[in-house]
Design a protein around this nucleic acid. Sequence first.
DNA 1: AAATTACGTCAATAGTACTGACATAATCTC
DNA 2: GAGATTATGTCAGTACTATTGACGTAATTT
Lengths: 177, 177
Amino acid sequence: MTDRSHTAGKPIRTAMSVEDGIDFAIIELFFFAYRDFTSDPDQILADYGFGRAHHRVLHFVNRRPGLTVAELLDVLKITKQSLARVLKQLIDTDHVVQLQGPRDRRQRELYPTAKGRALALALARPQSRRIHAALGDSGITERTLVERFLEAMVNPELRAQIDVGSAKMSGKSHGEH
Amino acid sequence: MTDRSHTAGKPIRTAMSVEDGIDFAIIELFFFAYRDFTSDPDQILADYGFGRAHHRVLHFVNRRPGLTVAELLDVLKITKQSLARVLKQLIDTDHVVQLQGPRDRRQRELYPTAKGRALALALARPQSRRIHAALGDSGITERTLVERFLEAMVNPELRAQIDVGSAKMSGKSHGEH
DNA sequence: AAATTACGTCAATAGTACTGACATAATCTC
DNA sequence: GAGATTATGTCAGTACTATTGACGTAATTT
């Protein structure tokens, strides 16, 4: 089982490193950082029988109350079928409600309930704490440095999705554009 | 279907924002940044019928040639059963080879083949390019700022796993400790 | 009236992950 | 040397997230 010298290639014993011209340090840091960043809410979600998908839906419904199903799909970049089960569970558990769209009655506007808002905040809190602590620990005084870096990591054509919130926005939060 | 006013909570129409005392900007940027960061290798992986799990295994086998199955499980924080299928596929496709441990013959040391090394580099290349571009676009001259921030985002007890490579390390890359 | 749009849903499949159990071989311990 | 422990592999069952394709309904647009 271990000897397959005749079929398999020979083992390479030298490690990939910066000498290969690749930024492995930040690649790996990003992996570890994101893994731990999501681990806090994941623990809370488990109590509800929810997963990462529920968090994402709940988050954006709370950040953009009244967004439609189509808009949500566009932000999450998943298919309607993937969203269906998750959204249904959030509605059945009274975290999210659907209202018929006022302009277009085919649309379903999604809103959080008080319960949904509370959970969204509970999930965001440890993440925010972690970020705050990381900014402090790393001695970064200008938080825009991190914001600018992360924003630059996003595909340019998708940056429109990013709603940095009251900071950058003038009036709109959803709807017409 | 849309009217369930008697069972469900009332819709909240105001958006969560920084006023809730939470750093939503960086929370969302981190989500979008990581999503796009992994999208480049994901496209390549799809050609091989591989997924994110294959990437992670291949990456660490190339970064720490000779690591054992147990060490790999510890880095990835997954179970043996989850690793099994993915590792088997990488071995069957001649990207990774197993060698009996020299000291302890129960152990299987994992090494990349030339094919596995090539794929690992091909996957890392677009990620590295993205990082490089983001550092440039955001006008960050001190890359240690980003490194320090990301490292501070990792759980302290897990930072030992982070092998920033030839930069911080003196001699060891695997094996004795 | 016909085409399109927004949404919901059914069926089938895939990738990643889990728990629990069991087997084998090698090493360690008494 | 016998027994316990360790490293690995594997089998069975389950769960979550995601996919494609197809179809239906109601509302809007052309």
